[in-house]
Write a protein that binds this DNA or RNA. Sequence first.
DNA 1: ACCAAACTTGGGGTTATCTCTGTGATTGTC
DNA 2: GACAATCACAGAGATAACCCCAAGTTTGGT
Lengths: 202, 202
Amino acid sequence: MSQILIVDDHPVVVEGLQKLVTDKKIARECIVAFSCAECLKIIDIYTPDLILLDYQLPDGNGINLCSQILKKMPEAKILAISSFKELSLVKQMIAGGALGYVLKNASDVEIEEAIRKVLAGKKYLSDDIAESMQHADSNFILTRRELEILHFIADGFTNPEIAEKLFISPLTVDSHRKNLIVKLNAKNTAMLIKVAAQKGFL
Amino acid sequence: MSQILIVDDHPVVVEGLQKLVTDKKIARECIVAFSCAECLKIIDIYTPDLILLDYQLPDGNGINLCSQILKKMPEAKILAISSFKELSLVKQMIAGGALGYVLKNASDVEIEEAIRKVLAGKKYLSDDIAESMQHADSNFILTRRELEILHFIADGFTNPEIAEKLFISPLTVDSHRKNLIVKLNAKNTAMLIKVAAQKGFL
DNA sequence: ACCAAACTTGGGGTTATCTCTGTGATTGTC
DNA sequence: GACAATCACAGAGATAACCCCAAGTTTGGT
């Protein structure tokens, strides 16, 4: 029987996962952390065989936590559990060191499969996600400058205003805006912000 | 013992809620619906004493479902359970006929209290939410038309394009856009979309 | 039947964005 | 040292959005 650490700030979800883990006899008991800080404290003491990690946490996000965990525990097996199916999030989680990514609305059977695979050191991706990884027409790797300008646009600043803040030409800002629209496959600025929000860039 | 209907598309959450409900001896067993459609079918057959309603569902949202349920079952006691703490959502849920609104990251104790209160026909609001209701500077209840147009804008359509789709004047569309910007306290369309996304209107 | 809210339409002027395309300068990488 | 990616800059014409304003018509609820 393995030891499992659940990191999630939703008590109801934690209980559901605990029930699943014990019912399926994956582990006898679970350790629970409701925040990033708590999680980091716990792995100083315990060495769980598997860490179930939520993305949204009260004091940070799963991506940063992922790398922090791996610094302390390079052998950690991490399975991300989130309700977001945005590819950018998934990619960042995987890049951050998570072995698997499963959606919260997945069936018990699927979650069990995910846990067992990751426990065995294998990778796992939700079917939905694996599929959309295929049709990865999306090529959004935004540069630092583009991200910076994207945030200004989302905050309601116009090209001239952004130009003044960054000490560059309004035409340059406009170029970045146009590149963003092309990269995120949007029709105009409004859609750009929607897509950016969905992909987790804001 | 009461009969409880849980409407949520996250099996893990459902199990957590079931465990809570049975452990606390609120009900012997729960009926579960994973979608709006399923929920509506079930209440044709059963008459649960309480309906636990998630906001985000695969085939719709909790607000619309709320009013649909009440049409069929005017006496229904509905407790909304969501991870979103945006006031606008809460208000719409309450306006839609929900008796209570509790956050998914609430403790077991709080969720139990919420369930018992609503079962008794009383109202319940999460502490967090009740507090922010006080400092309610934000008063965005969007009308149907505004919501409709908001979606078109977010999808990259211009005023003239939207006007053509809805068989109304481009000036009218622009009016709605301006009202949306004022209501959501945005500076321009880009910011409108960002705020709308944050508030869960998209 | 009434009131309030929502929906609708309008003008005129200013500003910003979109579409098109291109070029140098600066970084980082192999 | 070569090469790619990024960043910066540019312009002109067409379209759309923003700001000021006002006001008529439905619709829903009591």
